[in-house]
Amino acid sequence: MIEAIITLTTLGMLLGLLLGIAAKRFKVEKDPLVEEIEALLPGSNCGQCGLAGCAIGAQAIVDGKAPITLCPPGGKALVRQLADKLKVDVDMSSLADKPPAFARVREEHCIGCTRCFKVCPTDAIIGAPKQIHSVLLNACNGCGSCAEVCPTSCVEIDPVKPTLGTWCWPKPVSAEHSSR
């Protein structure tokens, strides 16, 4: 009995010491919180927050230089996740939940200027000079950068229509509310 206690105590102390040394010796320089937040962000580096990309945006959130509502494509869902992660309260009422959308080129107005596909962060627009451009729907994340640069305003951001494959069951009306 006593041997077991002594063995386990020694073992515990030794391992504790080892862990302590390892924690000092192999300390991670980068803030893991930044990485976690970067993983939450959409990751397309669209630049709508005014910063140069999602990694920098994540750093700014952690440093407190940017509000957690900075990311327009992330919408309400992202703000909620960020608020949970950072344990902060945020007023969601002012935020509009942006439905998922994609860009669409109106062919009749496209002049083939190539500006839109040069700014697309995910290379989702194909085309060539003086040719009508087209959007690859699977790659487009609806960030809207292309619509801003289009000289003829022919890029439209359309909401994604639900199909049988993407349709979701709605949340039932809350039980407590309907009972009163």
């Binding site: 990751g43 397309s44 999602c54 995910t122 989702a124 994340n141």
Partner: peptide, 20 residues
Amino acid sequence: HSIRTQQQERRSAAEARQRY
């Protein structure tokens, strides 16, 4: 459905990152 949608979004975000 919400969980599946979230997973899908995460997948497409990863793809977008790769494309970027």
